[in-house]
Design a protein around this nucleic acid. Structure first.
Lengths: 340, 340
DNA sequence: GTGAAAGCGCTAACAG
DNA sequence: CTGTTAGCGCTTTCAC
């Protein structure tokens, strides 16, 4: 199949290039008759307008970038990130956008990728997953001329648009649920220090404890890194201090922690109750269904794409902030609700 | 920051547009002195050439597409796909390529995505994950004028380039390993019917059995769908027929199957031995380390990108076929090797 | 309602 | 070694 141009179609139909362009861009100023002839010819030939030429002249591309920094290397150990990617990809499909994925593996990657991202004419906007506090990438990219939004609140929010869930509220609600069940020694397994997610969820946990007039016990606060094995190990640290419930910052860590509990000969939820975070499908990995904080992942993806589109079309000032709510999904791992 | 052009840089340095272009494209025909002045100016201004203009004139883009068909919705339940994506993404980083991700969720997605993919000037080439036999997408895309390669052997290989691992050989080796250990009732849990992967691995399993002069027993052959729960359920089906070893078509299904075995009060590997497929990090999900067939995922990604690059640069004829070897990684789940 | 003409920012002959 | 020139395929005024 030869590479057709607008001009070719025009010639075949016997009209001018402009008319064909108008048909493609759904301009109303084309007579019904001509429009149909053009459409038929386009169908018959399988013509698609050249994307590069289009963006060159219109100064706008329909590609957005999703950047996943180095520090988000748990990308492939924690199902949360693939799910998020999926949500964003589907939202792009709905909006006729093409999604480009930038996985930053190493420092060198970072350097090779940055110019590609900032090059004009390639990306119309970028979504950046917020990683750790040292994300040089975020600073660099948000300063480029391309509209950008951060996924997850960054440490430095000056002038940047971002979208996040209300982690504080979510963690507080989860912990309160545990308090309501009458648990006395409620522990926490957090994510890795140095991210706002971890900070906020711990903050929510502490707020709930305080709200109930309880003193937090540092020995009941362990740190993981969002991998299953880190949840297991954190639980091992916690066990000597006999928690009767644990709020865990991710489902995948909760799975690890529950394994540790069961291996110690204890039962879930009778001896130790659990609440996780994310609501990923963990199916048969444990024999007890996990109570968890559901992240609205699809909504998250859709909102992120909407936010970016807004930024692209209406300018990046003032910065926008979008905070989504979460749901507590009550299953078996937090124990039956106590009869009052 | 204003949007600079090549012309602007040229004016500032006091040379012509072409000279700047030459510097950017590393043409040798520029004097050391001028080159440095231009480079300095580019650095100072943070100039990046416009990608759209570039691909328009050079008739070549540096974007490749990765298409994951509808049927690969196990994308986010089986870590294999995220890992593959990662491998390809890293390979793209190394080759200065941008990766666009097309996740086909629904039939409508398929229709919306197809023209975007076939539009010239956007993608230089496409990698398509082979799904089930009914993949209309593969037919459609391989017929477009854009170079494409299939990841995983498709059912219809006429005129298409693809890359795959030697599934038959891998499954045969794994099964033989079980035979060498002296197991008598070796079962199989396969992936979903209707994919070449499943077909080939079953073929390898059968070949090994035949090679040992054994009659395959249909009751020892169960079918899963690459999810953990399906492995669990397949094992439940198998259990009444008392297999003493199982070759499972994916690690994630093996995890599910081992849970079923342990819940039945049996031990791994003493009562039932296991070999999985993929070698994904499944960490603490089971308490016994899994013997498995390692897929060379990074190599797979690199080779796929190399293959596509070859196709783009040297033409798509004749079709190329790349078959990668796998390794059997022996751990604990297949039992200690019998002393002869 | 339609065509002619200009030009988006860049690369690649072609001169010199 | 460097500058001039001509487009790449499309959108978009501006006439008619």
């Amino acid at each position: 199949m030869t590479e057709l141009t607008l001009e070719d179609i025009a010639k075949r139909v016997g009209v001018s290039r402009s008319t064909v362009s108008r048909v493609i861009n759904e301009s109303p100023n084309v007579s019904e008759k001509v429009r149909n002839r053009v459409i038929d010819e386009i169908r018959a030939t399988g013509f698609h307008p050249n994307a590069a030429a289009r963006s060159l002249v219109s100064q706008r591309t329909h590609i957005i970038g999703l950047v996943l920094p180095h520090s988000v290397s748990s990308f492939f150990t924690d199902p949360f990130f693939p799910h998020l990617t999926q949500g964003i990809a589907y939202a792009c499909n709905d909006n006729n956008l093409t999604l480009s994925l930038f996985l930053v593996g190493t420092k060198q990657d970072e350097e090779k990728i940055t110019p590609r991202i900032s090059r004009r004419g390639l990306l119309g906007g970028i979504l950046i997953q917020s990683g750790q506090s040292d994300d040089f990438l975020i600073d660099h990219l948000t300063n480029s001329s391309i509209p950008s939004a951060i996924i997850g609140r960054p440490f430095n929010t000056d002038g940047v648009s971002y979208i996040d869930v209300d982690n504080i509220k979510a963690a507080c609600t989860a912990t309160n649920h545990l308090i309501d069940h009458g648990y006395q020694r409620i522990a926490e397994i957090s994510g890795s220090r140095g991210s706002t997610v971890t900070f906020d969820r711990t903050e929510g946990y502490l707020q709930a404890l305080q709200g109930a007039g309880r003193q937090p016990d540092p020995r009941l606060m362990a740190e993981g890194n969002f991998t299953e094995i880190s949840g297991y190990e954190a639980m091992l640290q916690l066990l000597p201090y006999q928690p009767d419930a644990v709020f865990v910052s991710s489902d995948i860590m909760a799975v690890g922690a529950m394994h540790a509990v069961q291996e110690a000969g204890l039962r879930v939820p009778e001896d130790v109750a659990f609440i996780g975070f994310d609501d990923i499908p963990i199916s048969g990995a444990t024999n007890i269904s996990l109570t968890t904080v559901r992240q609205p992942i699809m909504k998250f993806g859709i909102s992120a794409v909407e936010l970016l589109t807004d930024l692209i079309e209406n300018g990046t000032e003032p910065p926008r902030r979008i905070i989504l709510d979460t749901d507590l999904v009550i299953r078996d791992s937090c124990g039956p609700h106590p009869t009052p």
